[in-house]
């Protein structure tokens, strides 16, 4: 708790100005436009990520607000997934990947040597682009994460709650013992979201969660995100501008420089970014005049 307070004061100096006062971000990647002084959910500071010798993203400074949806947008290959995966150390699984800089979560750098990546991922869950249920029953899919996290309470209740939160309960309550693969793609993705909710993370990272889904399933997931955001912080990568505009509170726009290194061009409240972007490049991209 003490750490959080300290962090809040630490960040307050850099974000004392209100949105109305904000002028252009200057030469650096634009810092977050904070409208209040509360603690952040998670924050990247001077983050650089490499795959071997390839500098994939540079100088990322991103302050993520708690219990808000933050969308990451930008052209393909600009490093959105790379940045998102850096927030729960999924890049550790890629042998060639190297992350420099800091990611502050509850006042601690999750890349500090003494921090356990497994513990980080238990607090910062992830939903992937392709639905990837385990080859287990629907019930066990949801229960698995809680089980490995040492959950000892009422598992049936937890599974039901997670499935309800993921708006899937009514469709599966009579076939919890059936394989997760017996569900449709959209249902599978909601199962994966239920699975992520069941471990009660503080932050949920979603990498293009709707790209494999039809418009109706997409809307169902979007509605779901709007409900979830009352309890969780959500970060979502999406290629769908409308989706970013519809669901997110904040949007971060990434692009690549001539060396194919991704960087943050503009970050701010979604409304402002879509209606009144500060950067010409942002405007070009969101209006489809990108080239």
């Amino acid at each position: 708790m003490a750490i959080q307070t300290k962090m809040a004061t630490g960040t307050s100096s850099s974000s004392a100005s209100t949105l109305a006062d904000m002028t252009s971000g200057g030469g650096m990647a634009a810092p977050a436009a904070r409208t209040h002084d509360g603690p952040l959910a998670i924050e990247a500071r001077n983050m650089n990520i490499y795959y071997g010798n390839f500098h994939a993203v540079r100088d990322i400074n991103l302050q993520v607000e708690p219990r808000k949806i933050t969308a990451l947008i930008g052209p393909s290959g600009c490093g959105k997934s790379t940045v998102l995966r850096a927030f729960n150390r999924m890049n550790d699984l890629v042998a060639s990947a190297r992350v420099e800089g800091e990611v502050l979560f509850n006042g601690r750098n999750i890349y500090a040597p003494e921090v356990d990546a497994v513990e980080v991922r238990r607090r910062i869950g992830m939903v992937f682009q392709k639905p990837n249920p385990f080859p287990k029953s629907i019930y066990d899919n949801v229960a698995w994460g809680a089980k490995v996290n040492g959950f000892k309470g009422d598992m049936d209740g937890l599974v039901e709650q997670a499935l309800r939160n993921a708006a899937l309960w009514d469709e599966v309550k009579d076939k919890l013992k059936q394989s997760g693969y017996s569900l449709s793609g959209g249902q599978q993705q909601r199962l994966c979201i239920a699975r992520a909710i069941a471990i009660k993370p503080e932050i949920i990272l979603m990498d293009e969660p709707c790209s494999a889904l039809d418009p109706i399933a997409t809307l169902a997931i979007e509605d779901l995100m709007k409900e979830l955001v009352e309890k969780y912080t959500i970060m979502i990568v999406t290629h769908n501008m409308q989706q970013a505009a519809r669901v997110s509170d904040y949007t971060a726009f990434f692009m690549v420089d001539p060396k194919r290194t991704g960087h943050l061009v503009e970050y701010g409240p979604t409304r402002q970014l879509f209606t009144n972007p500060k950067e010409k490049r942002t405007e070009d991209y969101i209006t489809g005049r990108f080239g």
Binding site: M90, R121, W144, G145, A196
Partner: peptide
């Protein structure tokens, strides 16, 4: 590998 990522992403060792 998506299955492994999913498991690690849920905090599996």
């Amino acid at each position: 590998s998506g299955l492994r990522e999913a498991a690690y992403g849920l905090g599996g060792t």
